[in-house]
Simulated assay, not measured.
Amino acid sequence: MLIFLSHGPLQGLRAINLMRRLYNKARLKKCGTRIVYVTVDINPESDEGFILDSVSEMMDELYSRQVSKDTKRSLLLTTP
């Protein structure tokens, strides 16, 4: 099986948090699924690809947390 992903805010394996994304990726890999990134040339088998993939996952998590904070703040400001 082949899965195409794109890195970026809230892209790729949709999950609640970083740990869940990593868990999902490990399960897919265990089942023999090959993950191919379509927006960035990442080879997760290489050292550089491992680092780039990890940093991208952390940046996605940071973006997700920021969106959550902004949403909660907006709800508090607009709630009567």
Rank of each mutant, 00 (worst) to 15 (best):
M1T: 10
L2Y: 10
F4Y: 01
F4I: 06
F4C: 07
H7E: 07
G8Y: 07
P9R: 06
P9Q: 06
L10T: 13
L10S: 09
G12K: 13
L13Y: 09
R14G: 08
R14I: 02
A15Q: 06
A15C: 13
N17H: 06
R21F: 02
Y23W: 11
A26E: 14
A26S: 12
L28R: 02
C31L: 14
C31S: 02
T33W: 09
T33S: 08
R34F: 13
I35R: 03
V36Q: 11
V40W: 01
D41N: 15
N43K: 15
P44Q: 07
P44A: 05
P44I: 05
P44T: 10
E45T: 12
S46N: 12
S46H: 04
D47P: 04
D47I: 02
E48L: 13
E48P: 04
G49Q: 10
F50G: 06
I51H: 12
D53P: 03
D53M: 08
D53F: 06
S54Y: 12
S54V: 00
V55D: 03
M58T: 02
M58Q: 08
M58Y: 10
D60A: 13
Y63F: 15
Y63S: 15
R65I: 09
Q66V: 12
Q66W: 13
V67D: 09
S68T: 15
K69F: 15
T71D: 05
K72I: 07
K72S: 14
K72G: 07
R73W: 15
L76G: 05
L76D: 01
L77V: 05
T78R: 13
P80N: 03
